[in-house]
């Protein structure tokens, strides 16, 4: 992955895929995941935030 650490891939009408060398820190400052790929919710409707749970398919999330 040349000299980039993390790779973000925006899925149309879907989540944000994160892979590579990264770590996800929650609002309390705790590292919650540091291995990919992970899928972060972009639609605002997931019941498993910050992760995607597929809700974007049913809540009509458009980009």
């Amino acid at each position: 992955m040349d000299d980039n650490n993390a790779l973000f891939k925006v899925f149309a009408n879907g989540p944000l895929e994160v892979s590579g060398n990264f770590r996800v820190v929650n609002s309390a400052g705790k590292i919650i995941v540091n291995e990919g790929p992970v899928y972060l919710c972009r639609c605002g409707g997931s019941s498993n935030k910050p992760f995607c749970d597929g809700t974007h398919k049913s809540n009509g999330f458009p980009d």
Binding site: N5, L16, R23, V25, S27, I32, N34, L40, P50
Partner: peptide, 14 residues
């Protein structure tokens, strides 16, 4: 290499 830091902001963005 230092990992990319991804912060989930409470009620806010990534």
């Amino acid at each position: 290499i230092k990992p990319t830091n991804i912060r989930i902001m409470k009620d806010g963005p990534i």
